[in-house]
Write a protein that binds this DNA or RNA. Sequence first.
DNA 1: AGTGGACTTTCCACTCACCGGAAGGCCATC
DNA 2: GATGGCCTTCCGGTGAGTGGAAAGTCCACT
Lengths: 259, 259
Amino acid sequence: MTTPKSVAGRLFTLLSVFSEQRPSANLSELSRSAGLALSTTHRLVNELVEWGALDRDDEGRYHVGLRLFELAALTPGSLGLRERALPFLEDLYEVTHENVQLAVRDGLEAVYVERISAHNAVNVVTRIGSRLPVHATGVGLAMLAHAPPDVQELALHSPMRTFTPKTICTPSALREKLARVRREGYAVSDGQIELITLSVAAPIRGPDDGVVAAVSIVVPNEGTDVASLVPAVRAAARGISRALRAPSAVRSPSRGTPT
Amino acid sequence: MTTPKSVAGRLFTLLSVFSEQRPSANLSELSRSAGLALSTTHRLVNELVEWGALDRDDEGRYHVGLRLFELAALTPGSLGLRERALPFLEDLYEVTHENVQLAVRDGLEAVYVERISAHNAVNVVTRIGSRLPVHATGVGLAMLAHAPPDVQELALHSPMRTFTPKTICTPSALREKLARVRREGYAVSDGQIELITLSVAAPIRGPDDGVVAAVSIVVPNEGTDVASLVPAVRAAARGISRALRAPSAVRSPSRGTPT
DNA sequence: AGTGGACTTTCCACTCACCGGAAGGCCATC
DNA sequence: GATGGCCTTCCGGTGAGTGGAAAGTCCACT
């Protein structure tokens, strides 16, 4: 990331310095990491602070500010979806007491927008706001399986990062998996991110019946009866789809072709 | 909001156009609302889109982008606090099945960072990311009561917005209320935002024992036994404080001077 | 088909906001 | 008191950013 010529670009590189690994930084760190002159950094960062995009604590370290948080709450995945999905996620949690997650797709990545976790549930790597490749996660597969053809093609032909020996990493395996997800109406990701965990995910449809998100439940992959989780997850997904006025979910609460 | 002279300022005014009322906008709307020339808006917005701060849908409308969401997840109130607080909020929810909220303070406003709501719980005005004045909300009062003296002074002498006839709006009433909150260890906001709801809130302390957040439960103010909610809310607040390694909470889980 | 209107995109010459080197201040540690 | 790390402020040259204008696109209405 060489110094961009536009002011906007510079601001972005500054903001991009912050990450899960480095949630705060002081001025010099910012200046170095962003590759900007100290005085420039100083001026820009001051503007960011003034607006509320960044906060500065008493030790002079900068953090991401609440103003950004406020703005981010307006993300499409947030405003409508999250609000409506939460009660259903709660239900799912209450029945299972396992980690429950809600994600949307951004390109070839799943972005987690909501998560419910218990004290003693299995630990998972994801946090709200974090991203994982679609091919390796339950929610990702559920969304990819119903994504537009061009996205699927792109996914099939992009290099696939592997996390464990179980991670899907060939086009043919992925193609097969997606077909299965479509056939069965849910996705299971077994040990693809961490060997010890497994997730069951189902797609959530929006007003135009396209898949806009996915819900999943993450459990230890030993001693868990996967089959018993599937109906609960699918029901939650369907409930959320209905709350979003998805035609296919709004119709009949009877059997039929669900999801 | 007259046109600021700096590029950064212009970017901020553009972003500020988005709100709960207007979560999306097209180019001209942005240009008009921000008071910027169309061509300028066009260029800046393009940069924002390129970075992911904004998204453009097929109809040409702009939305807040996932990149901002990702960044916002790094907010101090988010990263540590939220993650650790969630399980306790879950507990609280599970016991009561009412709306549970987590907020931090930004100046004289409470910013809601997490919320759990049930299908049939009483509807509340707040959403994640929204703000309300400290003087009018349970969480706000709980935080203000333990805020630095200068903040309290500022709050006492600032004009107080009223939402209902019950909203606290005089310095003396506020001062009294704050004293009571400190004495009792929790805050009740009865009909201050909406006449039909009531909230019980308790302060959450961080590693340096300062109050960093507050948790509350929102219920209809008729037919609810407030007294029975208090212990649950305080316990949750204490649990979260302990998870944050607050000295006063980490000590003994016994009686003593709690919260 | 023709017209009008609203929105978007591209172009370009002027100019002013931005850049970064330099210098100075503060506070540690050696 | 010297050294090195930070942060802050200043200032002159210059190129990035600006906004008017014109052209392109897509409707809806007649």
